[in-house]
């Protein structure tokens, strides 16, 4: 059996009286690249927030790197790029370097200072996303796609085992989306970083991810990408509650 970086057991969650997640059991195997899809309001972001301890489930348990969430301390092993990353204060006076360095804050720890070795780590993370020449630029002045790369670098700088991304391609133009997924593939294959990614762009995702998880309050599908693309429109409309079709990009 392969090792899981995240295990969810019987997770239930409601916002006030609205049931959002019901009886979720999910394992994310080490080294996998999973795309999480599902309709809006289907609980995708909620699920990620529960994984990260930002929301507490009504019942059920979360294990990160084989450790119960409540006692989990190795947060630097998990990188997170939120949906709101791109909605940061654009006037915030910070350089690209300073933003990526924030990814090391917790890892360095309290009462310790940023040293030269940390500087090298920041530059290395920036080179992984191809942004090292922008280190001294103001973050607010970059394009959406460049900013997203900087946030990936911030997540990578702590050398994570798992990278969780919530709709990372929103606001990035179509051409750069492909480039972005190639970067994810590279991280997954060369660095063996496990990737868990929420997306609406199922077409681009299915070309790159190894597995797909489909969520609409409960888990409707969890399997290999090839099986997911075989699903009929009828299967999908059951999941989404309305007719859908996957747009597969061929080029």
């Amino acid at each position: 059996m392969t090792e899981s970086v995240v295990s969810l057991r019987n997770i239930n969650f409601s916002y006030e009286n609205k049931e959002v997640l019901k009886d979720i059991n999910l394992d994310i195997p080490k080294g996998s690249f999973i795309g999480l899809v599902g309709p809006n309001g289907g609980g995708k972001t909620t699920l990620i927030k529960i994984m990260l301890g930002l929301l507490t489930p009504e019942s059920g348990s979360v294990y990160l790197l084989n450790e119960k969430l409540s006692s989990f301390k190795r947060w630097n092993r998990i990188g997170y790029v939120s949906q709101k990353s791109n909605a940061f204060n654009k006037g915030f006076p910070a350089t690209v370097f300073e933003v990526v360095a924030m990814g090391l804050t917790a890892k360095i720890g309290y009462l310790r200072f940023f040293r030269r070795e940390h500087k090298e780590k920041v530059m290395h993370a920036l080179s992984q996303v191809g942004m090292e020449s922008y280190a001294k630029q103001n973050i607010g002045q970059l394009s959406g796609g460049q900013q997203q790369r900087v946030f990936i670098a911030r997540a990578l700088v702590g050398n994570p085992e798992l990278l969780i991304l919530d709709e990372p391609t929103v606001g990035i133009d179509y051409k750069n989306v492909e480039q972005f997924y190639s970067l994810l593939n590279k991280l997954n294959e060369e660095k063996n970083i496990t990737l868990f990614l929420i997306t609406h762009d199922t077409g681009a995702m299915t070309k790159h991810a190894t597995d797909v998880v489909c969520l609409n309050k409960t888990l409707h599908f969890h399997g290999k990408t090839a099986e997911y693309t075989q699903l009929t429109d009828e299967d999908l409309s059951k999941i989404y509650g309305h007719p859908v079709n996957i747009v597969v990009h061929d080029h």
Partner: peptide, 22 residues
């Protein structure tokens, strides 16, 4: 001076700061 990196990280993105373990 001592808490500079924590203060900057928190000011930039409170949610990220929490998730990263601050």
């Amino acid at each position: 001076f001592i808490f500079y990196k924590e203060l900057v990280t928190l000011s930039f993105d409170e949610e990220y700061a929490t998730v990263s373990g601050i």
